[in-house]
Design a protein around this nucleic acid. Structure first.
Length: 677
DNA sequence: AATGCAGCCATTTTT
DNA sequence: TGGCTGCATT
């Protein structure tokens, strides 16, 4: 059995697996089998009776990764009944803690998790309540600052230091906002981690229970943890310091979300007797692909530095294609797929990775036109669609009466003849009486504060909600939703609409009902709704994948297309403006992540002109293009221009020879192609 | 209160 | 380009 476990591993991997006790840091390059190591370690701990499955805390970056790991471990132990119960993302594990111990923090166990949309709406309400200019203080901006504080583990009373005028206001809003969501018995994403930390800090008895229980802690993608997540981990590590973190500094791409690479780089300072393992054998990509990625990333100054060795053959050269326009690029990519790739690969093996999600649109249009199947991972997510949010809002209020945000949506759809003014009255009343919206409405009805028409509408709604709550005790949640769709007038509303989108809406609702079957009860379904990540959507059928490079982290594909390598788009201008050289290096890491997703073939491309904001914009090749190693690359720019008689290449260069737009990559690109001396 | 239209703005990445 | 806000109309 033990042979079975370890025989698939190389020497370095084996060492990392069997070093179970004390702090361990595994520095694992792209494609070096870090997930395999982590999974094997998990199984190894169980097999050797070092711990029971429920005594291991294992944190992954996405739910998908958690699920895969769960499956793999179960495969090790065929017929085992115990799954690894504490395996999940920081957020999903936190929810588990918080549901159990909500009272200790003054919450009720059935709290609702707010999404970004809810957060913004709530902040907007606070801004309006404070009579502030919503233009100057956009919810977006305020939320970003609040999130930053939360990522650092600071609740309103902990935030200190010198405030600039804006931060002063934001702090005030933060205070009110935080109180409000607590009153609503809701938590946002940041709260899940933050309150877990607070739970353990304030209740050492509770902390000790878990600390004792978790004999081992395993952490994946450690390079992308932020301050508060690191603290969360440190609070749970037992006195033997049995914590094993896996990561790759070259794949740290989430600093904008508060991730601190410092956690990774100073791990051995925090845990003095830490053992460090390096995995440097790449089993994923061909030599050409790996060399391309390695040379590119070597332009970064701040990195631990490691040399990845490919276990594969040279493979195809990495193709570098230059197109005239964004549309040509989409056409070119689809041509390559149709003419060359479809013979060798299934569509599922082919993925297009973009910097920003809106870039998928051009490809979408093309694939629709020629009838190639595709799926977009991320973007407008399933649970962000209006009809889905509507129905989920009904479920939320039923599950928790105090969810005012959901009730407000419910009041709005289908239309009940209740508008802003009535809503404002209700809000005023609920503030005064310190009641949630629903209770406020009920009381206002009793006191006869509504006009007859409105009273009838609201009375009907309240009665329905109560009925559905009763129903929910008797019938399955996936039947409950059907009742709601029917009795709320939602289905009638859809029937009355006659636009093209309607079919899609009905499809989505069917899919919602189907998805509900996968969950035991209403609450666990609602939890899934708020914590599902973009890559948690369905991967069924044989289709080309479209997603951002961020979303592709941890995944691998036979063929990868990397379009849009243009200055301003990639590296993205906004990131450079914000954080300069630091951001540039992160963009480069993103490029590294992108290239290293490919197993057999990689196609990098850029366009000379592109439609942006509705009009044509000239583009320059990304500086990263100039950093690609000549010997591993096959360039296909020339024939594009040869075929095109309208295009005066020299003239275009002159136009673009503004200092402002000059990028190092472009200079080098031209030199290589003998466009300049 | 609901609908419709004009003009505005924006597009980085997400648990 | 297109989605969203705000204003005017019904």
């Amino acid at each position: 059995m033990e042979e079975n476990f370890l025989s698939n591993l190389n020497e370095d991997q084996k060492k990392a697996v069997i070093s179970t006790d004390g702090p361990n840091l595994i520095v694992a390059g792209a494609g070096s089998g870090k997930t395999r190591v982590l999974t094997t370690k998990l199984a190894y701990l169980i097999k050797n009776k070092k711990a029971w499955p429920n005594q291991i805390l294992c944190v992954t970056f996405t739910n998908k990764a958690a699920r895969e790991m769960q499956n793999r471990v179960m495969n090790f132990f065929k017929g085992a009944k115990n799954s690894v119960s504490w395996l999940g993302t920081f957020h999903s594990i936190s929810v588990k803690f918080l549901r159990r111990h909500a009272e200790a923090l003054g919450f009720k166990s059935n709290f609702t998790i707010l999404d970004t949309d809810d957060q913004k709406k709530l902040i907007k309400k606070v801004i309006e309540g404070e009579n502030l200019d919503a233009k100057k203080y956009s919810p977006q901006l305020i939320l970003a600052i609040i999130d930053k504080w939360k990522n650092k583990g600071q609740l309103p009373n902990d935030v200190k230091g010198k405030f600039d005028p804006i931060e002063k206001i934001v702090h005030k809003i933060y205070k009110i906002y935080q109180q409000k969501i607590k009153d609503l018995n809701c938590m946002d994403f940041g709260d899940l981690i933050l309150y877990s930390v607070q739970l353990f800090e304030k209740n050492s008895d509770i902390r000790q229970i878990y600390q004792k229980n978790f004999k081992y802690i395993l952490v994946d993608e450690f390079q992308d943890t932020n301050f508060i997540q690191n603290k969360w981990l440190n609070l749970l590590v037992n006195e033997k310091n049995n914590i094993c973190c896996v990561g790759d500094d070259d794949q740290s791409i989430y600093s904008w979300r508060g991730a601190e690479i410092k956690n990774f780089l100073t791990f051995d300072k925090l845990y003095k007797d830490c053992k460090i393992f390096k995995l440097q054998q790449n089993y994923r990509s061909t030599k050409n692909i790996l060399d391309t990625a390695s040379i590119l990333i070597s332009n970064n100054k701040s990195r631990i530095g490691k040399k990845l060795l490919s276990k594969k053959n040279d493979g195809e050269l990495v193709k570098l294609n230059c197109y005239q326009t964004g549309r040509d690029e989409a056409e070119g990519v689809s041509d390559i797929i149709e003419n060359n790739l479809q013979k060798k690969f299934s569509l599922n093996d082919i993925t297009i990775l973009v910097r920003a999600i809106y870039q998928t649109r051009e490809f979408e249009e093309r694939f629709l036109k020629i009838g190639l199947g595709y799926r977009i991972i991320g973007g407008m997510r399933f649970y962000e669609r209006a009809e889905i949010k509507d129905l989920v809002a009904y479920l939320r209020v039923i599950s928790q009466k105090t969810d005012d945000l959901a009730l407000e949506r419910v009041i709005g759809v289908p239309k009940k003849g209740i508008g802003e003014s009535t809503l404002n009255q209700i809000y005023t009343f609920s503030n005064k009486e310190k009641l949630c919206l629903e209770d406020a409405i009920a009381k206002m009805i009793r006191e006869g504060l509504f006009k007859p028409k409105i009273k009838i509408a609201l009375e009907k709604l309240i009665n329905s909600l109560n009925k559905w709550r009763e129903d929910s005790k008797k019938i399955k949640h996936y039947d409950l939703i059907k009742t709601i769709i029917d009795e709320s007038g939602y289905s009638q509303m859809l029937k009355n609409k006659k636009d093209i989108e309607n079919e899609n809406r009905l499809e989505n609702i069917k899919e919602l009902i189907r998805a509900m079957h996968d969950y035991e009860n209403l609450q666990s379904f609602l939890e899934h709704v708020s914590l599902a990540t973009s890559i948690d959507q369905n991967w069924e059928g044989d289709k080309i994948n479209l997603m951002t490079m961020h979303a592709a982290k941890g995944l691998e594909f036979e063929v990868v297309f990397l379009p849009g390598w243009e200055e301003g788009l990639f590296p993205h201008q906004k990131s450079l403006e914000e954080k300069g050289d630091f951001a540039l290096e992160e963009e480069r890491r993103l490029a590294y992540v992108g290239i290293t997703r490919a197993k057999q073939e990689a196609f990098i491309s850029f366009a000379m002109r592109r439609v942006y904001h509705g009009d044509w914009v000239d583009a320059l090749p990304s500086r990263f293009v100039g950093e690609l190693p000549e010997k591993n690359i096959e360039k296909n720019e020339s024939q594009n221009f040869k075929d095109d008689t309208d295009f005066d290449f020299n003239q275009d260069i002159q136009i673009e020879f503004d200092d402002e737009y000059r990028s190092p990559g472009w200079e080098r690109f031209k030199r290589k192609n003998k466009l300049i001396k």
